[in-house]
């Protein structure tokens, strides 16, 4: 396995995960993740050549249902928990600022 991670990797991972971490958090998570990753290195002791991966414990593949129209949730219910809504839509800040647009 590749070497354990440093603070730069942790910042990169936090960006991928869309988590805005403080410097303190980056520092703490780096230490903790290094310890956890050292622990999971034990999996390297096992020879897994030719072993099929198990993503799922049961042999279920491609469960299908009839393609029939059903009652949808409806806009009112779908928007009921939205933190901000406007005119029947989810509302968000502008994606492009005025100058950039």
């Amino acid at each position: 396995m590749p070497a354990p991670i440093d603070e730069a990797t942790v910042r990169h991972i936090a960006h991928l995960a869309r988590l805005k971490l403080s410097d303190d958090e980056v520092h703490r998570y780096t230490q903790q993740l290094v310890a956890i990753l050292e622990y999971v290195q034990q999996l390297n002791r096992l020879n897994v050549d030719g072993v099929e991966p198990t993503a799922h414990a049961l042999p279920i593949v491609n469960v299908l249902r009839p393609d029939e129209p059903r009652e949808p949730l409806g806009a009112e219910k779908a928007l009921a928990n939205a933190p901000q809504k406007a005119a029947g839509f989810f509302a968000l800040p502008k994606v492009l600022d005025q100058e950039g647009a």
């Binding site: 396995m1 390297n44 897994v48």
Partner: peptide, 23 residues
């Protein structure tokens, strides 16, 4: 979320996530 994102990220996926699925 951080550990899982790392285990699935480019360059580490095979060594961590895929190996765990084989184990």
């Amino acid at each position: 979320i951080m550990l899982g994102t790392f285990a699935l990220s480019s360059g580490y996926h095979d060594a961590y996530y895929l190996r765990a699925l084989r184990v």
